[in-house]
């Protein structure tokens, strides 16, 4: 089994968006994504495994034309509780 294909979290919740109109097909998103969310088809990036996305924002941070958007954050209960309570705190 190839690494990374084993685990999947909750479907239809991630905030990842790709504007294919802006995409130049450079492939950086595919390179930095740790969960094989993207593929390159006909010179454009495409989201092929949206539910694999963990919203780390590596792709959006490195997209040269800002074609990617994601509400980044840590998938961590403590971080979210701290955020809801509006306090600073440790996560990992």
């Amino acid at each position: 089994m190839k690494r990374g294909g084993f685990f999947r979290y909750i479907d239809n919740v991630v905030t990842l968006e790709l504007d294919q109109g802006l995409c130049t097909g450079c492939g950086i998103c595919q390179e930095v994504c740790p969960h094989q969310v993207f593929s390159l088809d006909h010179g454009k990036a495409r989201i092929v495994a949206r539910d694999n996305c963990m919203e780390c924002s590596a792709c959006a941070r490195n997209c040269p034309v800002q074609a990617l958007r994601v509400e980044a954050g840590e998938g961590c209960v403590r971080a979210i509780i701290n955020e809801l309570l509006g306090r600073e705190g440790e996560c990992c």
Binding site: F7, R8, Y9, I10, V13, V14, T15, P34, H35, N52, C53, M54, E55, E71, A72, G73, E74, G75, C76, V77, R78, A79, I80, C91, C92
Partner: peptide
């Protein structure tokens, strides 16, 4: 178990919020 999301390598913030 839900707290282990923070240690895992594949959970998204949106997913954890959804689940919480």
């Amino acid at each position: 178990g839900m707290n282990y999301t923070g240690a895992s390598t594949y959970t998204s913030r949106s997913g954890v919020r959804h689940e919480m």
